[in-house]
Amino acid sequence: MAATKRFGSRQVEAWIDRATIRTNEGGHGTTVGFAWNLYDQVFEVFTVLVPLVSKGRSSAQSTKHEKSLKDSLGKLFLWGDGFRDGGLENTLETSDDLKETVLETLVAMGKTLIFCKL
């Protein structure tokens, strides 16, 4: 009963704050950071390079490579789509392990694309 009363009181307080009391607080939120920029650049380069594979070769192995690359590109797009508008930074700032793992993976992809690291 006491908990319900306290909850109701807080609801009223929040309503008063929103309805009448003016505050000077501005909007906040994490902006796009380094991790998202890295992902975005890897994705852009990947998107440009995949069609080149199909243009350059016509063997069976090339077709297999093209399919694999398209699958990887699709996965990369789906992975990043849920972390737009600062979501990736919010997630990685919360967990150092995740940050390290994600950045290392993105760096590995970027190096593969740039240096053709094998």
Partner: peptide, 10 residues
């Protein structure tokens, strides 16, 4: 390598 990296991210 790209395939493994994408799978790791997923």
């Amino acid at each position: 390598s790209l395939e493994i990296s994408a799978a790791c991210l997923m």
